Computed example of a mutant assay.
Amino acid sequence: MDSKALVLFTLLGFLLAEPGFGQRGDTDLSEWMKAQEKLINTLQGNQKDVERQQSDLLALEARLNATVDELERQKDEMDKLKKENQDLQTRLSASDGEIDKLKHSSKAAPRVAFSVSLVNSGEIYQGPCTDKTLIFKRIFSNVGNAYNHNTGIFTAPANGLYFFSFNTYGYNTHIVGAILVKNAVRQISTYDYPSTDGSDSGSNTAVLQLAAGDKVHVELWDNSRVFDNMNGHTTFSGFLLFPL
Rank of each mutant, 00 (worst) to 15 (best):
12 L>S: 09
12 L>M: 14
15 L>Y: 14
16 L>C: 12
17 A>P: 07
31 E>G: 05
34 K>P: 01
38 K>G: 09
42 T>I: 09
43 L>Y: 09
43 L>K: 11
46 N>K: 10
47 Q>E: 13
48 K>H: 08
52 R>T: 15
52 R>L: 15
56 D>H: 09
62 A>Q: 07
67 T>N: 09
69 D>N: 06
70 E>R: 11
71 L>W: 14
71 L>T: 06
74 Q>R: 12
75 K>V: 05
77 E>W: 12
83 K>V: 04
84 E>L: 10
87 D>K: 08
89 Q>V: 14
92 L>A: 09
95 S>Q: 14
105 S>L: 05
111 R>P: 00
115 S>C: 05
117 S>F: 01
118 L>A: 00
118 L>I: 03
122 G>M: 04
123 E>M: 10
132 K>D: 01
138 R>Q: 04
139 I>G: 06
141 S>P: 02
146 A>K: 06
147 Y>G: 03
149 H>C: 06
155 T>I: 02
158 A>T: 14
162 Y>V: 02
163 F>K: 06
164 F>Q: 02
165 S>H: 02
165 S>T: 11
174 H>W: 06
177 G>V: 02
177 G>T: 00
182 K>A: 03
184 A>S: 15
186 R>Y: 09
193 Y>I: 11
198 G>Q: 05
199 S>P: 09
199 S>D: 10
204 N>E: 12
205 T>P: 05
205 T>E: 12
215 K>G: 09
216 V>L: 02
216 V>E: 00
216 V>M: 03
223 N>F: 07
230 M>L: 15
230 M>H: 13
232 G>T: 08
234 T>R: 00
237 S>Q: 09
238 G>S: 05
239 F>A: 06
240 L>F: 02
243 P>M: 11
